[in-house]
């Protein structure tokens, strides 16, 4: 599945999300190209997670539209769908900033639950499942094989039969990504996947993201604070501050944009401090 570099997968148009008096997203427009990694950065409280929540049906935007250009179903207006249909029909799948696994279930079970819709269809209202008919058995074996493939790719095979909630934080992050991949996403939305990871784990995450987009042609929308990840893997970056898009472009362009530097600094910072912080942003790409 090779898509031309110019195809737009998702276009966010004049999106506004208000909570009472607070405008979390303010007239935001953004294009997400197919088969690429699009980074979203911005200070805390800028509205990045809110954007994901609008995108995946957890919030209904106040105004604006989210149009997904689906290769099979044509244009899908994401803002009109409930969250489970965004994942199931539009194949836009997300992870959460504060990990949301099924903690008491094993890692493998987490990945099998992610394939619920396929399996449920194969189980024919559980009738085929209750009697363990061949059609259902085959579907189950396939789902296990698919889960096993991702577990192997993410180095989680040894942990497959452990309760997910008992594993270390960095591993839980990886499980959440593996689980999202099992939903068969067209667009994978990752909300700060490197948060809480050590440098080695961050580097592994880089490799994984590059593999997913480079080798598999998956489109990824990446919210990230860790500059070493976002600057290195993103093809394109959008910067949000106070709900508005303040800059957009390649990592190089964004890094040197005075607006971005200002947003990351705050306007009242004095000279010395701002100089230091500039280095922090600009030098972020180098570990």
């Amino acid at each position: 599945m090779n898509t031309p570099a110019t195809t737009t997968l998702l276009s966010v148009r004049q999106l506004t999300m208000r909570f009472g008096g607070l405008t979390a997203i303010d007239d935001l427009s953004l294009e997400v190209p197919a088969g690429k990694i699009t980074g979203i950065i911005g200070p805390n409280g800028a509205g990045k997670t809110t954007l994901f929540n609008c995108l995946t049906g957890f919030y209904k935007p106040t105004t604006g539209s989210l149009r997904l250009n689906h290769p099979r179903h044509g244009e899908i207006r994401l803002e009109t769908l409930p969250s489970h249909r965004v994942a199931r029909d539009a194949q836009v799948v997300r992870t959460f900033q504060n990990i949301r696994l099924f903690p008491k279930m094993t890692v493998l079970e987490n990945l099998i639950v992610a394939q619920h819709n396929v399996l449920q269809r194969a189980s024919k209202f559980s009738i085929a499942g209750l009697f363990n008919l061949p059609g259902y058995r085959r579907a189950e074996a396939e789902s296990i094989a698919r889960a096993a493939t991702w577990l192997r790719r993410l180095g989680l095979e040894q942990l497959a039969d452990h309760a997910a909630g008992e594993l270390p934080y960095g591993i839980q992050r990886r499980i959440e990504i593996a689980r999202a991949l099992c939903v068969d996403p067209l667009l994978l939305c990752l909300d700060e996947p490197a948060a809480g990871l050590n440098p080695r784990e961050s580097a592994e995450l880089n490799d994984l993201l590059l593999y997913l987009s480079g080798e598999l042609g998956l489109s990824i929308l990446l919210i990230e604070h860790d500059m070493s990840v976002v600057m290195r893997v993103s093809d394109h970056i959008g910067v949000i501050s106070y709900g508005r898009k303040i800059a957009e472009g390649t990592p190089e362009q964004v890094k040197n944009d005075p607006q971005v530097i200002k947003a990351y600094l705050g306007e009242d910072d004095d000279e010395d401090d701002s100089e230091q912080r500039t280095h922090a942003v600009a030098g972020g790409a180098n570990p």
Binding site: S83, R94, V113, A114
Partner: peptide
């Protein structure tokens, strides 16, 4: 275990 995660998985 987690209703929101279920929805995010398309359930």
């Amino acid at each position: 275990e987690d209703e929101i995660a279920c929805q995010a998985m398309g359930m």
